[in-house]
Each structure stands twice: as C-alpha cells, then as structure tokens.
C-alpha cells in the first residue's frame, strides 16, 4: 500500500529524514514511535506532500490503481484523491466555513475523481450523521466553523470524522492521542478501529503506548534521528513504555 525507500527529506534546509525505510501492506496497522525531534511529524508531512518539505533522495510509493506509484510529483490534493489521508497533529482553523460545507466539498472533490456522483447538502447531511454517531459527536457540531473554538478533543475527533467521510486506503494518524483525555481517546480509537478493513492500512504515530492499547498495531517501529532504528511486534511498544528510548539509542 505504501513503500518508502531510503528516504532523505528536508525542511528549511535542514535534513530531518536520513534514510527512512518503511513498507505497509493492505490490512496492516503500523505504529511509529520515537522521542521528540526524531522526525515523526516530518515523516507525515513529506508523505502528505507539504510544499515546505522536500525530498532530497529516495522515494515514496503509494498504491494507485493496483500499481505502486512514485508520488513525488503529486500535489497534496492529488494524493488525497488517490486515497491518502493525514490526520493532523494540529488541525487548522478555517473561520466562517461550516464543518458540514467543508466535509461535503472534500467528499465531492475526492468522489468526482472516482466518478462518484456529488452529494447535495440534504443527502450529505444524512450520510454524515451516520458517521458522526460512531464518533459520538453532537449534530450541532457540523454547523460550526471548521476547528474554530473546538476543544482539543473535538479537533481530533473532527480529524477522524474526515477520515470516515473520505474513507482512505492509506492513512497516517499523526499524534492523534495528544491532548486527549482517556474517555476521548477511547472514542477516537473506537472510530479508528471501525474504519479498519482488509483493504486499507494505517500508520499511527504516537509518543505513548497508551493509544496502542486501544488501536492494536501489527508492527511497531522506532524512529530516531530520521530513520527507523528498530522494528518489532506490539511488545516493542510496551518495552519502550517501561524502559524509555535510551537503551535503543545507546
């Protein structure tokens, strides 16, 4: 689904990713853990195509129409329309734009690319309500401007709601647990789990093992200094929780 080969990438002239390799197959959930400054957020932004981040060498391939395809030249919206999704660590506010209008615009933009008929506001409203129920979100919430005056928990739920609307094949969740209390985290994790299928895949970036109690990964990677230094099963996350990162870094 996603294949990253020997990736070197920079932001503002600083090289952050230094030879990162990662392969994610359909049906898998991977966790990427690492200390502050290890390159976790850079990783997610490079894959999403943020214009300030540049690939110096190596490549990122996404499965498009059954083919692994180099996505280097693709804009963020082209990647999104091909089934890639990034749940932001810091969701962005769009004043004056109701969440429902934003979600519908996104749904129709992606749908149009796949020849799916656009939904009008009434049909979309019915569609979105079923998605919101899973995330235990209030109906009033989609009338509010995108992320404006949202609490930390609401913002993160909104990210997962967007994921539920766009139904991506490959998603990266960037520290979706940060700023969440335990109850909110359970709800978000439940939402994420309900979206797991054999046909899609996820990479969950997190600092803490806690989230992984609720979203169970198949594979855990430790990112340090721009590359994966260790890969293991779910047990690796527990080990990090107990011992910290120092024993891995040495």
């Amino acid at each position: 689904m996603l294949k990253i080969k020997d990736l070197y990438a920079s932001v503002n002239g600083n090289q952050i990713l230094k030879g990162l390799n990662l392969e994610v197959n359909a049906g898998e959930v991977h966790a990427v853990m690492g200390p502050n400054g290890s390159g976790k957020s850079t990783f997610s932004k490079v894959i999403a195509g943020h214009p300030q981040y540049s690939i110096d060498s190596g490549c990122v391939e996404l499965e498009i129409n059954g083919q692994m395809t180099d996505i280097k030249g693709m804009t963020p919206d082209e990647r999104a329309r091909e089934g890639f999704f990034l749940a932001f660590q810091y969701p962005v506010e769009i004043p004056g734009v109701p969440t429902s209008e934003f979600l519908r615009a996104a749904y129709n933009a992606v749908g149009r690319h796949h020849g799916i008929e656009a939904l009008d506001p009434i049909d979309f409203d019915a569609f979105i309500r079923t998605r919101m129920k899973v995330l235990q979100m209030d109906n009033k919430y989609i009338d509010r401007a995108v992320n404006v005056d949202f609490s930390g928990g609401e913002k993160k739920r909104n990210e997962i709601l967007q994921m539920a609307v766009l139904n991506p094949r490959m998603a990266i969740l960037d520290e979706t647990d940060s700023g969440l209390d335990v109850d909110s985290m359970k709800i978000v994790a439940h939402g994420v789990n309900s979206l797991r299928t054999r046909h899609n895949a996820m990479v969950v970036i997190t600092h803490y093992q806690r989230l992984l109690d609720y979203i169970k990964p198949d594979i855990v990677h430790i990112l340090y200094n721009g590359r994966i230094i260790k890969t293991g099963g779910p047990g690796l996350a527990l080990e990090v929780e107990n011992k910290g990162y120092d024993w891995l870094i040495k």
């Binding site: 999403a48 195509g49 804009t75 963020p76 990647r79 999104a80 329309r81 769009i94 996104a106 967007q162």
Partner: peptide
Amino acid sequence: AEQIFYLQSRGLN
C-alpha cells in the same frame, strides 16, 4: 499556507 495545505490534503485543489 497551512490552511491551504490542510484543505488540499482533503482533496480540494
């Protein structure tokens, strides 16, 4: 640029 990136990452050009 972050607002535009955010919206683009949701499929809007």
